[in-house]
Each structure stands twice: as C-alpha cells, then as structure tokens.
Amino acid sequence: MQLTINGKPRSFDASTFSVAYLVGQLNLEGKRLAIECNGEIVPRSQFAEVHLVDGDKLEIVGAVGGG
C-alpha cells in the first residue's frame, strides 16, 4: 500500500498494519508525538487498534522550539 506521511508518499509491502506498527517502522517509538489520519486525530491509546489502508494521509507532529 501507499501512504502519504507528512506530505511525502511512502510504499509498504503489507496491505494494512496498525498505527503502532508504523511508529515502530519509522523509528519513532517512545517519542512524544501526535498523529492525524485523513484529518482525524488518532489518540495514542488507539495506535494498536487503528489500521491503515492504501491511500491514507498521515500527519505526524511533535513539539519544537518556537515563540
């Protein structure tokens, strides 16, 4: 399947997997972040249950320095 992550297309062999699996694949495990899928926030408590499918658009954000 193909996902769009932070504006960039990425291809994966599997046809579906959980948000938690994706977080691990991206080396983001343990990072404080928030994820939006197709404009809807995926609560951290649901990372294991929510599954992604071809065409999903994800925003993965964190806190950075700012004024």
Partner: peptide, 14 residues
Amino acid sequence: VTVAIRRTNIGQTA
C-alpha cells in the same frame, strides 16, 4: 514556555 507544533522528521535515528 511556548513551543511550536511541527511535522516530525521522518527517518531520524532512534
């Protein structure tokens, strides 16, 4: 302290 919310750098080292 204020912080900004930005896209996480994908492909960063753990």
